[in-house]
Simulated assay, not measured.
Amino acid sequence: MVELDVQIPTAFDPFADAENLDATGAKEYVHIRIQQRNGKKCLTTVQGLKGNFSYDKILKDVKKQFCCNGNVVQDKVMGKIIQLQGDQRKNVSHFLVQAGIVKKEQIKIHGF
């Protein structure tokens, strides 16, 4: 038999950095999605905002600034979700960053 001079690394823990996620500034993402309704109609959803924010006040400001309708929906699994009429993904992401609610790196925009 041939013996190879190769070092095999010991157990690698891919979640070793996960301990640092409990620190402040952890990567908790705000997900902005678009859902197709019937025909040309679509719906924008904002999910993942922290619970210490007033969803109703954020919704009121967004509705006024972008001239759209919307509401806050309570989901069993996901928590509170903001729903807006139309494709407001870019508008909402710019609004959340400028208002200081989240950082730009914490926003994930999904959709087609």
Rank of each mutant, 00 (worst) to 15 (best):
G111T: 02
L84N: 10
A18L: 13
M1L: 00
A11W: 13
D17T: 04
K104F: 05
Q36V: 06
Y29F: 15
H31L: 09
V2W: 09
P14M: 15
D13T: 08
K63V: 04
I81V: 15
V92L: 15
G48Y: 00
C68G: 06
Y29E: 06
A23V: 07
C67V: 08
S93L: 06
K76R: 14
Q83Y: 02
D22F: 12
E28G: 12
V30I: 13
D5R: 11
I82C: 06
I32W: 14
G48C: 01
L59H: 12
Q35Y: 00
K63L: 05
R33I: 02
Q35F: 03
N38L: 11
G25I: 04
H94R: 15
G111N: 05
N71I: 00
Q7A: 07
L43P: 00
T24D: 10
K60I: 10
G100M: 14
L43V: 06
V2Y: 11
K108G: 00
Q106K: 07
A99T: 13
V6F: 13
G86P: 09
M78G: 00
Q65E: 13
V30D: 10
N38I: 11
V77W: 07
G79Y: 01
H31Y: 11
T44V: 13
M78H: 03
Q74G: 04
D75Q: 10
D75S: 08
I82G: 03
K50E: 03
G48D: 03
V77T: 09
L4H: 12
G25Y: 09
M1G: 07
F53M: 07
L59K: 04
Q7T: 09
K80T: 00
I101S: 12
D22M: 15
G25C: 11
N20I: 06
Q98K: 15
Y55A: 14
I109N: 05
Q36N: 06
I107P: 11
K57T: 15
K103Q: 15
F12E: 02
K57C: 05
K104V: 08
I107V: 11
Q83A: 04
V2E: 08
Q98R: 15
F112A: 07
V62A: 14
A99M: 08
K80S: 02
